[in-house]
Design a protein around this nucleic acid. Structure first.
Lengths: 63, 63
DNA sequence: CGATAAAGTCAAGCAACATTGACAAAGTGA
DNA sequence: TCACTTTGTCAATGTTGCTTGACTTTATCG
């Protein structure tokens, strides 16, 4: 499971901390998801998709 | 997080056990997800979406 | 009614997700 | 160079997802 978080974040010039705040999760969680340590839960994936205005499938990709 | 699993399953006349087998998870997991005990992981949500040929957003809905 | 399948549920255990707090490494800019 | 921000990472801890095994309840059908 890969994801485009880093790019989407860069497009908006957000730090991991900024994104974490908007998602209401810890900065470490954002970092862990971006660096592929683990996948987000489904509810968090929905919050991410909502925040970026994209379908989940456009952000998370099976590797 | 609600889901349309029960309906999608009924449309195909599958038992919870049938669905569990196709998803390669336990029957109890399917039951727990259907009855709202917990949400599936993101990878499992993808397998479910693939199986039914639908976007994740068409199967799982924020409540 | 009686048999079988399907669905629901519980407990115990393990794996995965997410947290806080801390610290080091790398990047940014005055 | 020096200060500051950002990113990466670790440990410890708590919560959630998923498992097996067992059991009860509900539906289906001869």
């Amino acid at each position: 499971m890969k994801n485009r978080l880093k790019v989407l974040r860069a497009e908006r010039d957000w730090s991991q901390g900024d994104l974490a705040e908007r998602l209401e999760v810890s900065r470490q969680s954002v970092n862990a998801i971006e660096t592929g340590k683990y996948d987000p839960s489904l509810p968090l994936a929905f919050r991410i998709a909502d925040l970026f205005g994209l379908p989940i499938e456009d952000i998370f990709l099976k590797d």
